[in-house]
Nucleic acid binder design. Structure first.
Length: 106
DNA sequence: ACTGTGACGGGGC
DNA sequence: CGCCCCGCCACAG
């Protein structure tokens, strides 16, 4: 796979940079990649290159996993395996968020 | 060139 | 808390 567009590559590498045990939302990834507002493209990238990316570290806004696919259960499992903390149905962004409110990053 | 679509976000009801 | 609608941008048909 050879992304032809710059944003595709930027988004891909941004996803690759998400530390283990942390998660990022579509919006955060888009912004971190240098394309704020491109959350839709993040989704397209995941759908296209997700098979070689840590797709499970990408979650919905607010820490929710509102994926309609069956991968939702698998995703939560994978995240918990990496030590991501959940608060009910959502991810504890304050603790496991990569670019959001992470108070203790060490 | 135009229309529909999508692993979404956010605000409104 | 759940559902709906609109905005968003690139890609496929």
């Amino acid at each position: 796979m050879q992304p032809v567009s710059q944003h595709i590559a930027a988004i891909r590498s941004t996803i690759l940079r998400i530390p283990k045990g942390k998660v990022a939302t579509y919006g955060e990834i888009a912004e971190a990649a240098g394309y704020p507002g491109y959350h839709r493209q993040v989704a397209q990238v995941l759908s296209k290159y997700g098979h070689v990316l840590p797709w499970y570290r990408v979650i919905g806004a607010g820490g929710f996993i509102k994926t309609q696919l069956e991968t939702a259960a698998d995703q939560r499992l994978r995240l918990q395996m990496e030590g991501v903390h959940f608060l009910g149905r959502r991810v504890d962004m304050a603790r496991s968020g990569w670019l959001s409110n992470n108070r203790r990053s060490s």
